[in-house]
């Protein structure tokens, strides 16, 4: 089950200096919506509000007719880094959302094993986060978020701190994993090529609002020339 989310006249930040002012946007169920924008354009603030970590100053965020007022396991968030609990092993981190839901140990173990394997970390279950590279830690974050079977995944520049090679691997892994989950994805990045690779639609934020909303042609594997789209996004930034 996927989740559609609607932003209604949403203002985030403070009255005199809103980060985002009166924005309206409908996130379609099951789509990958990539949010791009320059530093300070409110990308991460928007994501925190969608997660329920930040209350809107004005306006509403609505999911299935209900206003989002708090965090929920329906909307898992993946952070740039350091969000794994460093005292828990890979397995124990991935099991966390299932522990919170009080799933029996056997089911937790099985689900964690499956997700760890799907992100390519089989054999690393008992390692601590500090024993992993940056890319491996992000794989664990992905497995942990998806193990909880969220209906939407909010990703805050999750590959922003990785080198180009690892970032490319992570992008491919993400696309592969998302094919099975059908979760709605809202992905924040400042990298235009990353946006075009992952997105069904790209939202460009700037000057406190939505500068542009751009459809990206699918399927991704047709080798479509995206230069025009890329130029359009960069122009809006």
């Amino acid at each position: 089950m996927t989740l559609g989310i609607t932003l209604e006249s949403l203002t985030l930040g403070y009255a005199r200096d809103p980060v985002l002012d009166e924005i309206n946007l409908a996130v379609r169920p099951g789509e990958v919506l990539v949010v791009v924008g320059a530093s300070g354009s409110g990308k991460s603030t928007l994501l925190r509000a969608l997660a329920g970590l930040l209350r809107p100053y004005r306006g509403r965020i609505v999911a299935e007719g209900e206003e989002i007022a708090a965090t929920s396991r329906d909307r898992a968030m993946i952070f740039q880094d350091d969000a794994l609990l460093p005292w828990r092993t890979v397995r124990s981190n991935v099991e966390l959302p299932l522990r919170i839901r009080k799933l029996p140990k056997r089911e937790r173990r099985a689900a964690a094993r499956e997700w760890i394997a799907r992100v390519g970390l089989a054999g690393h279950e008992d390692r601590l986060p500090r024993e992993l590279s940056g890319g491996m830690r992000q794989r664990v974050q992905l497995a942990r978020a998806l193990a909880g079977a969220p209906r939407a995944v909010l990703m805050d520049e999750p590959f922003g701190a990785l080198d180009a090679q690892t970032r490319a691997e992570m992008q491919r892994l993400l696309l592969h994993v998302l094919r099975d989950t059908r979760a709605t994805v809202i992905f924040v990045t400042h990298d235009v090529d990353e946006a075009l690779l992952l997105a069904d639609r790209v939202v460009v934020l700037g000057s406190g609002g939505v500068r542009a909303l751009i459809e990206v042609p699918r399927p991704r594997d047709l080798g479509v020339d995206r230069t025009a789209l890329r130029d359009q996004i960069i122009k809006e930034l």
Binding site: A161, A168, R172
Partner: peptide, 28 residues
């Protein structure tokens, strides 16, 4: 800032196993 390699634009391939790419960053 648009830093993706051409390799990354290939159609959704299977995930490759994690490389033992070692530590690169010290932000954590």
């Amino acid at each position: 800032e648009a830093q993706i390699t051409d390799q990354a634009r290939q159609p959704d391939p299977l995930p490759s196993p994690p490389r033992s790419d070692g530590p690169r960053r010290t932000a954590s």
